[in-house]
Amino acid sequence: MNSAIEIMMILLVLSDMALLGLSRLRTCISIVSFQGMLLGVLALTMQLSAITPRLILIAAASFIIKGFIFPFLLRRGIREAGAQYEIEPFVGYIMSVIAGLAMLGISFWLGAKLPLFAANTLLIPAALTTLFTGLFLIIARKNALNQCLGYIIMENGIYTFGIVSVAEIPLLVELGILLDVFVAVFVMGIAIYHINREFDHLDSDRLNILKG
């Protein structure tokens, strides 16, 4: 079981790196959807011996919302906005991957320092890396859809973090976060639609012309 968790964590980190290095939005959405499903399975794997209805609820919610609903919304966003890939991010793709490696190193260092108990030494670093990756995407990409992806990835990180101590985090908090992101994606979806309709592009860095 431990090695299964380990492999999942490795896949999680690899998917983070892929998200940093890939430019095609559709591929990125597929990867995020993969991450969501992975985390749903992870929640169950962590507690194989003591599966509770609450756990199944969390896992199923994560699996369905992140694995299917978000990607569906985002794909629709793409269809309506017509954006296929980010043309000119603030930080280039290769630099992003290198930054990702730095974040990975920092996460491992932090993971060794944090006074947290985890079933597997990879869990906390992988969670932190995912969190940082999400933040990085929000900062470094111009496209509103990409930033939206960043939020989801960040939430994935928080979620993984929560799984580590699943007994302690109240269900309400977890669901609350999920709901937050859900609303965020929804709002963003509407915003994206309108940004696109008003300005004919999706570059959120040009929103500053609104301040007049």
Partner: peptide, 13 residues
């Protein structure tokens, strides 16, 4: 170059 950087990241990971 992106593929090669990916290879480097795999090694480093």
């Amino acid at each position: 170059p992106q593929l090669l950087v990916a290879a480097g990241s795999l090694s480093l990971f």
